[in-house]
Design a protein around this nucleic acid. Structure first.
Lengths: 232, 232
DNA sequence: CCGATGCTAAGGGCGCGGCCGAAGTGTCAC
DNA sequence: GTGACACTTCGGCCGCGCCCTTAGCATCGG
């Protein structure tokens, strides 16, 4: 099997704390510079450069040149799913009884953040729970689906247009285990559409330099009224 | 982030050719002995023992003692999904224009095999294609769903009983990229149920010592009549 | 033109970990 | 019991690769 070495090489690219930290930082779906990634990984820029070169060579990352900056991001949703699945196994395995201490910096992340292209944190899990509780979405371990009433609800929320490309009932919903809440939130096309729409409505704002999302005043009201989610 | 090291450690466990080969061998969902895994990995038993100990310690594998044999298998479907996602990325990345040579031993594997708990190979992809073409199943990149006509078809095929635990329309279908065909086949509860049912009906038989599946005479007829799949 | 900034390329130290040989424990057969 | 078999543990060799320092290119500002 020649493919065995390809599997091992791919996995080994994630099997190093410095590179794993870079992937974790890139899991918000945005593009970061080599210097930013070096800082989050805790290595010098030239070491980070070597890592990034290998990751680009392997096709896990893509780079976009802008002036003297080079922005790196995950090459595809498939890479994001791979990292997700590894995080899920890594989080489930250890016998860490009590969750690691919650630093003040983590507080914002745990409240609301992006996970590649969709919402995560308490807000993401809360929205998923609300949609399931109201019968708009059904979630299992292996997939998710939007019900007819859910389609109507989503249309009224303004994201029907994005789903027109897919036929009615077409699967576009996927569960994604939240690393801080240890419960699933919504990923896939539906999750991405919800995230974009909330940003569009001004309910959420990206915080520069972090993957945390700020819930605006309108957002607090909107999430409560439309989803029954307490985003306090 | 303390979790970074956990991610790196988990990924590193797969980032070694010997261990990657073991995972690949275990992806058929069955339990193998340490000696068998050592042989497929191309290392001595004592080296394999060390690897297996680490994998068990990390919770990726579970072991079952039977006499003087110790049978190892993947610890959970989550681990299988992780390996799947890595294989998908590893297979998509390289610029291997022509597929690796097809040995005679590989021929049976490419025709029909198990992938953890469901069907793969030409047969697995063929069944997925047939179900999609007939409107019984809808497949996207992020998930799949069974249509009402599909539910009726599956009930007539004798796997409705297994799905009773889940409500009607509940998601239980998931795409899984086939490494030999480079196209999706059916995974998740649906894929597993189809596999079990085909074995039950005597359409397929496991070949001892390999993950290849033998298509019986009844199977050849059955797949053609019920699915419109040429399993020749 | 100059320096500063962002990143890349080469060279050496060094520690982690895979691998094997040899020896030890448990299990089955006779 | 004795031997064979499956597997694990221990000790030591050795090489891969991570990291840093030093040096070399591009790009922007003045």
């Amino acid at each position: 099997m020649l493919t065995i070495v390809a599997i091992a090489e791919t996995a080994a690219l994630l099997g190093e704390p410095a590179r794993a930290a870079m992937f974790s930082a890139l899991m918000d779906g945005r593009a970061l510079t080599a210097a930013e990634l070096a800082a989050t990984a805790g290595v010098t820029p030239q070491t980070a450069s070597g890592h990034l070169g290998r990751l680009i060579e392997a096709g896990l990352l893509v780079v976009e040149k802008q002036g003297r900056h080079r922005y790196h991001r995950l090459a595809s949703p498939a890479v994001a799913r791979m990292v997700e699945s590894i995080m899920q196994v890594a989080g489930a395995a250890p016998r860490q009884a009590r969750p690691p201490r919650v630093g003040p910096a983590d507080a914002a992340l745990r409240a609301a953040r992006t996970c590649y292209d969709h919402l995560a944190g308490r807000l993401g899990v809360g929205i998923a729970d609300a949609l399931v509780a109201r019968g708009h979405v059904e979630l299992g371990a292996d997939g998710g689906a939007v019900t007819p009433t859910g389609e109507a609800f989503l249309a009224s929320f303004g994201i029907a247009a994005r789903l027109d490309g897919a036929r009615r009932g077409r699967p576009f919903c996927r569960p994604c285990l939240d690393w801080s809440e240890r419960r699933p939130h919504l990923a896939g096309v539906l999750g991405a559409s919800l995230c974009v729409r909330c940003l569009e409505l001004g309910w959420l704002r990206r915080r520069p330099g972090t993957r945390a999302l700020e819930i605006t005043h309108e957002g607090r009201r909107g999430f409560g009224e439309r989803f029954g989610v307490d985003a306090g």
